[in-house]
């Protein structure tokens, strides 16, 4: 059987659990990454206090692929500048675009996100835009050069699960890039559900960070994501309606 790998911008990953950092204690980073089998973790550049105290970069294991995000950017222009800064700091070519100018719901601005994606993709970044799941926007992001699409499941930090399920399904069906559910996943079962649907990976932060036992929750997410992936690959069986198959045929009138 062919090895099941996640490929983003030509880079291969075994793990489909992308870790959002920034909501749990930095000392726990390593344990969460180990237990979660995480290979890629986001990094808010605005938290990278380079050379200073509490620099999140100091806590990332060397073999992890960093996904710097542009959190704090309110416009495409600011996102572009933060991405360039991340590259200068040696964080690599991956970038997760976040453009938010709404302090209440923290909803991403899809329009500015497309603009930033286009500029950064041309500059050779591997661009992973965080977006509100809109099929037309996803298509625009794809043609702007995105390497993956990161639709939100629910408002960030809300732990409310796949509220946007039906719209994410459209992206899974229509977009050829990896679809990574980012934001809103509150429980391992929701991560599993997303993977069963056919998304390529799940990102979580708050759900892990707010658990009583953070490293154990990282383990739970790893297992749930693996289970969901296996279920997707296995092909889910039919789910019968509660009454079973209809008994009075509608096509009994046919006479050939």
């Amino acid at each position: 059987m062919k090895k099941d790998k996640l490929v983003i911008g030509g880079h291969e990953f075994q793990s489909r659990f992308i870790l959002g950092s920034g909501k749990f204690s930095l000392e726990m980073t390593n344990a969460v990454i180990q237990n979660g089998g995480v290979e890629m973790a986001t990094l808010a550049l605005r938290r990278a206090n380079v050379g200073g105290e509490g620099n999140i970069l100091d806590y990332m294991p060397e073999n992890i692929t960093l996904l710097p995000n542009t959190s704090g950017a309110r416009t495409a222009e600011e996102a572009v500048r933060i991405a360039r800064l991340a590259r200068e700091l040696g964080c690599g070519d991956f970038v997760k675009i976040e453009v938010i100018h709404d302090s209440k719901y923290l909803m991403p601005d899809n329009y500015e996100t497309i603009k930033a994606t286009e500029i950064l993709a041309k500059e050779g970044f591997i661009v992973m835009p965080y977006m509100y799941p809109d099929l037309n926007v996803a298509r625009s992001l794809e043609s702007a050069g995105a390497a993956a699409i990161m639709p939100l499941g629910a408002p960030i930090g809300s732990n409310r699960g796949l509220l946007t399920k039906d719209f994410i399904k459209m992206l899974i069906d229509e977009i050829d890039l990896p679809i990574i559910v980012d934001a809103g996943i509150g429980r391992p079962s929701q991560a599993c559900e997303a993977m069963e649907l056919g998304v390529d990976a799940v990102m979580a932060n708050t759900a892990v960070a707010t658990a009583k036992d953070v490293p154990l929750m990282a383990t739970a997410f790893r297992l749930a994501i693996e289970a969901g992936r296996s279920a997707y690959l296995a092909g889910l069986g039919r789910v019968l309606e509660s009454k079973g198959e209809a008994s009075s045929p509608l096509t009994g009138f046919l006479q050939d």
């Binding site: 749990f24 204690s25 930095l26 808010a44 550049l45 605005r46 938290r47 990278a48 206090n49 200073g52 105290e53 509490g54 704090g72 950017a73 600011e78 500048r81 933060i82 800064l85």
Partner: peptide, 12 residues
């Protein structure tokens, strides 16, 4: 068990 944050801002 909380995380002290010295910097949570980037001016660009």
């Amino acid at each position: 068990g909380l995380q002290p944050v010295f910097l949570d801002y980037i001016r660009v």
